[in-house]
């Protein structure tokens, strides 16, 4: 690269050549801000996502399911940490990010604002919610920011077990009694649409999408990823013998994809705005856990002081 190029030109050249941007590179302020927003919200989603399943650890139906669920929830916490540290390479701090989450300035995946009411829901979360997250995260392995891309590689490697254990729960329920099959169907009925909402608004309406695509932070659009998820999930539901709650769902031979109905965007907007079934509960729980842990942080600081 010739030394006559400006910072902006070098940056644009790297993006155009599909090269990764690394922490010490010059980057436009908007790129940095956009990444801090996206990575921190991704981290918050992992951490808040521990709650709906975490509440089932004590109620898992067997010791095997309990240990599996414990391992999965522990992974989500770990994934949150990978992502917080990736965000910190951009010059933000853990305290700032937590503050933004707890004050409601930062969002997290709104699917976690739905209640996890039955053991079937635990299966559906692993199968659908982790399934949707994997579709998104596989795409993000190609994101333009190096530390984020590398965190995605690590996370995807670990995440496959999450989806498989969820499907395994569904499979067991669907091979069980009438009551168990009904429980599985009920879970699919309630989690299907929120799972499709995880991919965000339509491309045309997505506030951050076009810039993120231009900067190659996002590599595939919301609608593309949503279609991919539907295409891979429908046969999985058929194999379980469950019915997807969408009368418009059908295979489109011409497109080579499933057609599906419209998401209830009013519900989506409501839950994102904070008025979902569990928004307040999730943040209250996070604040409480954070405050309950204050004495640990204090003890660590005291220890550090003494050994300085």
């Amino acid at each position: 690269m010739s030394p006559a190029l400006s910072h902006e030109e070098i940056f644009a050249g790297r993006i155009a050549a599909d090269e990764r941007i690394e922490p010490k590179d010059w980057m436009p302020e908007g790129y940095r801000r956009n990444l801090i927003r996206q990575i921190s919200q991704h981290a918050h989603s992992e951490v808040i996502g521990m709650q709906p399943e975490g509440a089932w650890i004590t109620r898992a139906p067997s010791l095997k399911r309990k240990t599996v669920l414990l391992a999965k929830v522990q992974d989500e916490g770990g994934h949150g940490l990978y992502l917080y540290s990736a965000a910190e390479t951009l010059g933000t701090s853990r305290e700032e990010m937590i503050q933004a989450l707890q004050s409601g300035r930062a969002k997290y995946a709104s699917i976690f604002n739905y209640p996890c009411m039955s053991w079937g829901d635990v299966g559906a979360i692993g199968w659908l919610v982790d399934g949707a997250a994997i579709v998104n995260q596989i795409s993000l392995q190609q994101t333009s920011y190096g530390p984020y891309a590398r965190a995605m590689v690590r996370i995807c490697k670990e995440e496959s077990f999450h989806q498989r254990q969820g499907y395994d729960i569904m499979l067991n329920l669907c091979r069980g009694s009438g009551e168990q099959i009904a429980m599985a169907q009920d879970a699919l009925d309630r989690w299907w649409w929120p799972s499709l909402m995880m991919f965000g608004p339509h491309d045309a309406e997505s506030a951050h999408s076009s810039r993120s695509m231009a900067w190659k932070i996002k590599r595939q659009s919301n609608d593309e990823l949503r279609q991919k998820f539907v295409d891979q999930t429908v046969p999985q539901a058929e194999f379980l013998g469950l019915r997807i709650p969408d009368p418009k769902l059908q295979w489109n031979e011409e497109r080579g994809h499933y057609d599906f109905g419209e998401i209830d965007w009013e519900e989506f907007a409501r839950v994102v705005a904070g008025d979902g079934p569990c928004n307040a509960e999730r943040i209250d729980h996070h604040v409480r856990a954070h405050e309950d842990g204050a004495w640990v942080r204090k003890a660590m600081l005291a220890y550090e002081e003494r050994h300085r």
Binding site: K64, T67, V68, A71, D75, E158, S160, F161, R164, Q165, Y167, D168, L171, P235, Q236, F239
Partner: peptide
């Protein structure tokens, strides 16, 4: 071993 994907044996179709 249950932390690994291969622990969950799923039918070939899925």
């Amino acid at each position: 071993p249950y932390r690994h994907a291969a622990f969950y044996q799923l039918p070939d179709e899925v």
